[in-house]
Structures are given as C-alpha cells and as structure tokens.
Simulated assay, not measured.
Amino acid sequence: MTEYVEDVIESYNSYIEGIGKGSLLVAKMLKEDRTLEAFQMITDFSEGVTWLIQAANLLRKNNVRVELEIAKMNEFLSEINSGLEIQDYVLVADLFEYEITPFFEEYRPIEKSKA
C-alpha cells in the first residue's frame, strides 16, 4: 500500500471519528436557534461527506475495503437539503441527532493492516 493511500485512510478515519460529536453540536445549535453557526457547520458537514465519498471511491480503486454506505450519506445530504429548503430546523436537528450521529458512531474505522 502506498504512503498516499495510508494518508487517505488516516484522514478518512480521523474525519469519521469526529462526525458524531459535530452532528450533535449542529443539532444543539439548531435547537438553540443559533442557525447561522449551525448553517456553517452544515456546510462543513456537506463538504466533508463529499470528500468522504471521493476518498471511499479512491480507496476502493486501490483495493481497500471500505464499508461506508455512500447511498446512505447521499440520502442524508438530500434530507438535510429538503429540511433546510422548507426551513424545518427541528427536522434537520433531529436528523443530525437521531440518524447521522448514530450512523457514524457505529462505523468502524478502516484498519491499515486489513486494507
């Protein structure tokens, strides 16, 4: 495995490790009507998920086993967008708290030795 692939795995695992806490923070901010801060974090989340999808595809091309469900992440992005469009911030907060957080907290990191 190349050093580049190992670096991607490390970054990938590190990002996924922080998504749960970040998702709970987004939910809290939305519930506290701190929407501007929450919107910035949602933008960061969306960009991060897009990067995770790209990284997962790159890793798979390099024969690394990636268990992350890309379809589920795309579904999350779609549901977030729909909730924001209708300004249903309670729905978006619940999505982050009850669906996104558990999804990423249950995800096991990629092990380099098994990659």
Rank of each mutant, 00 (worst) to 15 (best):
Val90Gln: 14
Glu111Ile: 09
Lys72Thr: 14
Ser46Tyr: 09
Leu59His: 02
Tyr107Gln: 14
Lys31Ser: 09
Gly22Pro: 01
Ile110Gly: 00
Ile86Thr: 13
Tyr12Gly: 03
Gln87Met: 15
Asn74Leu: 08
Tyr15Arg: 15
Thr101Leu: 12
Phe96Val: 05
Trp51Phe: 12
Asp33Thr: 11
Asn63Asp: 12
Glu47Ile: 12
Tyr4Thr: 09
Asn62Pro: 02
Glu85Cys: 03
Ser23Thr: 10
Ile110His: 00
Arg108Met: 12
Glu6Val: 03
Thr43Ala: 15
Thr43Phe: 14
Glu99Ser: 11
Ala71Glu: 13
Glu32Leu: 10
Glu97Cys: 06
Arg60Asn: 03
Met1Arg: 06
Ala115Cys: 11
Thr101Val: 08
Asn62Ala: 09
Lys61Thr: 06
Ile16Leu: 14
Met41Ser: 10
Glu32Asn: 09
Phe76Lys: 00
Gly83Glu: 01
Val64Met: 00
Leu95Lys: 03
Asp94Trp: 00
Glu105Lys: 08
Gly20Tyr: 05
Leu52Phe: 06
Glu97Thr: 08
Val64Tyr: 02
Leu36Gly: 13
Asn62Phe: 00
Ala115Asp: 01
Ala27Arg: 00
Val49Pro: 03
Ala115Pro: 00
Leu24Phe: 07
Asn74Glu: 10
Leu68Met: 09
Ser82Lys: 15
Thr101Arg: 13
Lys114Cys: 02
Leu30Met: 06
Ser14Asp: 14
Leu24Thr: 02
Tyr4Gln: 15
Trp51Ile: 09
Glu32Tyr: 02
Ser23Pro: 04
Ile70Pro: 01
Val26Met: 01
Ile86Val: 15
Lys28Pro: 04
Tyr4Asn: 12
Phe103Asn: 05
Ile9Leu: 06
Ser46Pro: 02
Glu47Ala: 15
Glu105Cys: 09
Asn74Cys: 10
Ile80Arg: 02
Ser78Val: 11
Arg34His: 10
Val66Tyr: 03
Val5Ile: 14
Gly48Asn: 07
Met73Phe: 07
Glu17Tyr: 13
Ile42Trp: 01
Pro102Lys: 05
Lys72Asp: 08
Glu79Ala: 08
Thr35Ala: 04
Met29Asp: 03
Leu77Asn: 10
Gln40Phe: 12
Asp44Cys: 12
Met29Ala: 04
Thr35Ser: 10
Ile110Gln: 01
Ala38Phe: 07
Thr35Ile: 14
Ser78Phe: 09
Ala55Gln: 02
Ala71Val: 06
Val5Tyr: 04
Glu3Met: 13
Lys114Asp: 06
Lys31Ile: 09
Leu30Glu: 00
Arg65Gln: 04
Ile16Gly: 03
Ser11Cys: 15
Glu6Leu: 01
